[in-house]
Design a protein around this nucleic acid. Sequence first.
DNA 1: TCGCGCCTGCGTCAAACGTG
DNA 2: CACGTTTGACGCAGGCGCGA
Length: 232
Amino acid sequence: MTTEIIESQQDGSITHSMAESESAHMQTQAGQNLIPTLAQVATIAETDESAGSEGVIDSHKRREILSRRPSYRKILNELSSDVPGVPKIEEEKSGEEGTLPHITTMAVPTSIYQTSTGQYNEETELAPSHMAATTGDMPTYQIRAPTTALPQGVMMAASPGSLHSPQQLAEEATRKRELRLMKNREAAKECRRRKKEYVKCLESRVAVLEVQNKKLIEELETLKDICSPKTD
DNA sequence: TCGCGCCTGCGTCAAACGTG
DNA sequence: CACGTTTGACGCAGGCGCGA
């Protein structure tokens, strides 16, 4: 089997076009097997070629093969502008600290955002007031201070301008790193949520198009019956 | 019951991308 | 161009189903 993975960019150009090998359906360590990711494909392609020689492939090389596609938000919003039925992912409101952007109409199973272990609970306390009226059973959460929040002492570190000793500089560096990790943690969560949203949107669009297609086929058959000469 | 494979979600890193 | 954001990749952990 050889499948082409082609993704069109906003400007219509082609970002990716690579062959998917037989084993491209293999899972990652994490077992993510919805669709073989581009890097998986790249890895597989390279592994097939250099299996006997090098073996270890530099991750940088792998990444070089990849080029990014537009964000899910962009894709989805573009879809929504083309197709009336497709919901938009709203822009994040910068003023609302710690709140997730609410989605307009996509219905998502309630259990999605919570792990079975409940470890997600602590940082995703429900904020009922934030629930979008049109979302039905779509949960929307307000992010509380994450459990990995910085220790009080670190948060109270001196501002960069007043740093003198190497220790203070180190503390500042640590604080910055913690802050960056915390932000990225939240960003990753949000990104995953958007990705799910995106996939669901595509699935619903497929469903709609399938129905349309079926209707058109039926219509065509009817017209054929009407137009065809009767054989009495 | 235990081991195994699969699935899902998370945190982190790195690189592309967006913005002021 | 510096800095923040977004997202693919990776590795890990926990839950679940299934066969031995």
